[in-house]
């Protein structure tokens, strides 16, 4: 690493000499070169995906590769729409995602608040138990969770699809981290005014938690949007298949048609990528809060 890179950690600080500042600006060129190169590598698969989705299969299989397909094959997208009930699956994905996200926001913020700011017996142990579930891969839960959902009579219901996913150890932890950092004075002022803990939570704490709730929303939306197996297994209706599963079916159907598969995968990712690009500032600020602090 060149030395110029290393200094970079320093945020803009007052009191630096003019000479230094100039040298810093000069070296930003290198920073741009590095970042642009890295960014290109990061974004290349998406570009390649987009280009492939607009090519012919013969172009995909040609050596040397065809970088620009010439005549763009929009027909690949038309074929996806013809073969995949895209809008229907899109709405299934949206509704599953909304239910799970709302559920997590409510449950995780409440539990996180209690773990952070309340005192009760076994608090440490309960917290450790909640966090321990992070360490088990989700595949392990598959059959037991199905049996429980079945036992509850929740197969083929929204509750069944949402149930395991609205409880989140990570979300609870995230919210707890946030609530730990809130100064006591705010809470106490509210209590002085006669608010009960629930009122304090709703009126004082939640409004402060915007960025963390944002981060939680993002993480849950991402996970839910991309989750394929669980909705597929608890629901036995073809019309309740979410987009991720629809794409998997589509890909499983033929391994030949690379270009149409790519078009389908572009369409599956597009909603979430667009949402991200539009919301990027909030997403990133929100996630930044999920770290420590």
């Amino acid at each position: 690493m060149p030395e110029a890179t290393l200094t970079a950690g320093a945020p803009p600080a007052a009191g630096r000499t003019r000479a230094r500042r100039t040298s810093r600006h000069g070296s930003n060129v290198w920073a741009h070169v590095l970042l642009a190169t890295g960014g290109l590598v990061m974004v290349f698969p998406f570009v390649w995906q987009l280009l492939t989705s607009l090519s012919t299969n013969a172009q995909v299989m040609s050596v040397p590769p065809v970088f620009w397909p010439g005549e763009l094959q929009w027909g690949n997208y038309a074929e996806v729409f013809a073969k995949l009930p895209f809008l229907q699956e899109f709405w299934v994905s949206v509704s599953i995602t909304v239910v799970r996200t709302v559920g997590q926001l409510v449950l995780c913020s409440m539990a996180g608040y209690a773990f952070a700011r309340m005192r009760f017996p076994l608090r440490g142990m309960l917290l450790a138990l909640v966090l321990s579930i992070l360490m088990v891969p989700s595949q392990v839960y598959l059959i037991p969770q199905y049996q429980i959902v079945n036992g509850l009579g929740w197969l083929n219901t929204v509750a069944g699809i949402a149930a395991p996913g609205i409880f989140s150890a990570f979300g609870t932890f995230l919210m707890m981290q946030f609530f730990r950092g809130v100064p006591d004075s705010l809470e106490e002022a509210a209590r002085l005014d006669g608010a009960n803990p629930f009122q304090v939570f709703v009126r004082v704490m939640l409004p402060l938690a915007g960025p963390s709730l944002g981060a939680l929303t993002i993480i849950t939306v991402l996970w839910s949007w991309n989750d394929l197996l669980w909705p597929l297994i608890v629901s036995t209706r073809a019309e309740s298949m979410p987009l991720a599963a629809g794409i998997a079916t589509f890909a499983g159907r033929t391994t030949t048609d690379y270009t149409v598969m790519m078009a389908a995968s572009v369409l599956a990712m597009a909603p979430i990528l667009l949402l991200f690009v539009v919301m990027q500032r909030r997403v990133i600020d929100g996630l930044a809060h999920s770290g420590l602090k």
């Binding site: 320093a10 945020p11 803009p12 600080a13 500042r21 810093r24 600006h25 930003n28 920073a31 741009h32 970042l35 642009a36 890295g38 960014g39 290109l40 990061m42 974004v43 698969p45 998406f46 390649w48 995906q49 492939t52 991402l222 949007w225 991309n226 394929l228 991720a244 794409i247 998997a248 890909a251 598969m261 790519m262 389908a264 995968s265 572009v266 599956a268 990712m269 979430i272 990528l273 991200f276 690009v277 990027q280 500032r281 997403v283 990133i284």
Partner: peptide
């Protein structure tokens, strides 16, 4: 200090995190 286009770069680097794994695996 003085770095520009940071939002743009952050989007580039963060995009893979957002992408659907099944779809990304294909490409």
């Amino acid at each position: 200090p003085g770095m520009r286009f940071t939002a743009f770069y952050r989007v580039l680097f963060f995009m893979p995190y957002v992408a659907m794994p099944t779809a990304v695996a294909m490409v």
